[in-house]
Design a protein around this nucleic acid. Structure first.
Length: 153
DNA sequence: GCCAACGTTGGC
DNA sequence: GCCAACGTTGGC
């Protein structure tokens, strides 16, 4: 079982939006970065856990925990010419892009802010905190996972 | 809105 | 295969 961190813009899909979904489950469509795609297509397994991170907002931070409900499968939004995630190079025989299904497991009463994460010496090497990091899906080590869980109030 | 960092594209 | 130009991400 692996640990991950998945970024979402709350304007797009917040932890509360996710909590309101049927079965608190959503397809993680629209990722158009090869490294992030590879994580979903090749490495994520059903049952893996991930932190749900709010990015590009007033108070960035971890807002909850999701579990991978379904491993990587083709992202069909790449095939819709009218959608914003359309990729003309993708086709039914060549999906290019992949998504997973995630289910909200826990919504934190108080999000763990990016400021708090940076202040935790146990998270010094965390990829999320590395300079210039832009990946929307990141692996999290078991040590980091445990250290962050201890910060949940 | 600014800007640094990084990925992608395309000319050569 | 190099690299400049461009677009996107995301914190501030």
């Amino acid at each position: 079982m692996r640990y991950w961190l998945m970024k979402s813009e709350p304007d797009d899909c917040s932890v509360d939006d996710l909590a309101a979904m049927p079965d608190r489950t959503v397809a993680w469509y629209g990722v158009r970065n090869y490294q992030a795609r590879n994580f979903m297509r090749d490495d994520m397994r059903k049952g893996d856990q991930a932190f749900f991170y709010h990015s590009s907002c007033a108070e960035p931070g971890i807002a909850g925990i999701v579990t991978i409900q379904r491993a990587g499968y083709p992202d069909t939004t790449a095939l819709d010419p009218k959608g914003k995630y359309f990729d003309p190079k993708a086709g039914p025989e060549n999906p290019i892009w992949y998504m997973v299904d995630v289910r909200l497991e826990q919504r934190f009463d108080t999000p763990i802010t990016l400021v708090a994460l940076k202040a935790n010496p146990r998270l010094k090497g965390m990829r999320l905190l590395a300079r210039g990091n832009r990946l929307s899906i990141l692996p999290v080590t078991a040590g980091e996972w445990g250290a962050i869980l201890k910060m949940v109030v």
